[in-house]
């Protein structure tokens, strides 16, 4: 079976659906089947959100645990929350900037030490930590974090299409008034990956 499963994780409102939609459209452009499990409605209001993008020979949008090929997260704790989805020794790419849930501020829950979070991820997978927020701000908007991570994902060699196709899909589908920012953010993610000498 020829199948690539990507899990996108984060907090409702961070642009996960946009990133997933871009990946799905790029897959279709590359003449591949894609099924995407999305989250709409109440869960989008600041809750933990995950979106699964399956490309290739698939019948269902959801996946078994230990079967995703790559996990991309817009928030470090949310990466760990979805770790069960990914195959052992595969790749996790996560932003390093926490979004503190209200339950933590209220003292009901604690936000774990990031070192512990990264350590547990590394026990199962390879980990790329990226200051996506910083790169997004440099690109012109905090909200462009999703594009930074798409850029980083594009050059891992894990996608069944080239980074250039992903960029083209972004240009075709995102609002033109943010295009300069989106392109810059996407590129900064790609550059980050290259500078860190990551090769799959």
């Amino acid at each position: 079976m020829n199948k690539t499963s990507i899990v996108f994780a984060g907090v409702g409102g961070q642009g996960i659906l946009t990133a997933a939609n871009i990946l799905g459209k790029a897959a279709l452009e590359a003449n591949k089947k894609a099924l995407i499990a999305e989250v709409h409605g109440m869960a989008q209001r600041g809750g933990a959100v995950e979106c699964i993008i399956n490309i290739g020979d698939v019948y269902s949008a959801l996946i078994c645990n230990d079967s995703a090929d790559v996990l991309v997260s817009l928030e470090p704790v949310e990466a760990l929350r979805q770790l069960s989805k990914i195959k052992k020794d595969r790749l996790v790419i996560t932003d390093i900037n926490p979004v503190i849930p209200p339950s933590v501020s209220l003292g009901i829950d604690t936000y774990p030490d990031l070192e512990d979070v990264f350590k547990e991820i590394q026990e199962k997978c390879r980990l790329i930590k990226i200051d996506a927020l910083g790169l997004a701000i440099q690109s012109g908007a905090r909200i462009a974090k999703n594009m930074v991570l798409l850029g980083a994902l594009a050059d891992t060699g894990l996608l069944p299409f080239l980074p250039q196709l992903l960029l083209k899909t972004i240009q075709k589908n995102l609002p033109s008034r943010y295009m300069a920012i989106s392109e810059k953010a996407f590129d900064s993610g790609r550059v980050f990956l290259k500078n860190n000498n990551y090769v799959e």
Binding site: V11, R45, G46, G47, V77, E78, L80, S103, P112, E120
Partner: peptide, 11 residues
Amino acid sequence: PKVKLPARPPV
């Protein structure tokens, strides 16, 4: 996971 994660319900 082993590390205890904070709940993140919608708000």
